[in-house]
Amino acid sequence: MKKIYTTFQEAVEEIKDHSTIMVGGFGLVGIPENLILGIVESGAKHLTVISNNCGVDDWGLGLLLENKQIDKMIGSYVGENKEFERQVLAGELEVELTPQGSLAEKIRAGGAGIPAFYTPAGVGTPIAEGKEIREFDGREYVLEEALTADVSLVRAARADRFGNLVYNKTARNFNPEIAAAGKVTIAEVEELVEPGELDGDHIHTPGIYVQGLVEGQQEKRIERLTVRQEA
């Protein structure tokens, strides 16, 4: 029922020069690693990328930066990346910083047909400059507009060919909202299973949001390994 791709490059063929894309993940957790590599291969340029973070210097979205494929980045925290810093200071990269909860809600709203919403986050800060402020019950709120994308890329642990997705632990993060906010959504999945194998009560992203699927094996790099000593 959904398009099942066999190569990652084919899976990202809808991403053209000047496309706006959303990419799931928090840090390096839950990122569609192989689809990002597919964009590196395809060479699509002048991209606007909406993602909470921008990878690290040699992995994740950092690879697109290194390849100068990104013109504009919309995210909440971009501090793990030296090349990012260099491109911003050199005026090569435009950045729009958005509070993390507003970012999640802007994406959620985009997928849910809500054009804008009021939130307290950012009132009285540089983020609210030039935006409408409105008072409700004596408290000030800022109007934030929804975000959508030409193509959304997400990563899930398991999927069936109807596009139903199940995520693993904190690899869920922005992925469900991003899946819903793309005109075309491609899911990189760790395991594609037969229809009926996933429990309908436990689906995180219903298949209606997903247009294409590709199975892939991830490196799952760890940014900050923190362990306790065995007793």
Binding site: P99, G101, P120, A121
Partner: peptide, 15 residues
């Protein structure tokens, strides 16, 4: 100084 981003702080302080 280089701006890294606010992460979730602006939402959390109102929550």
């Amino acid at each position: 100084k280089v701006i890294k981003g606010m992460g979730g702080a602006m939402d959390i302080v109102h929550g």
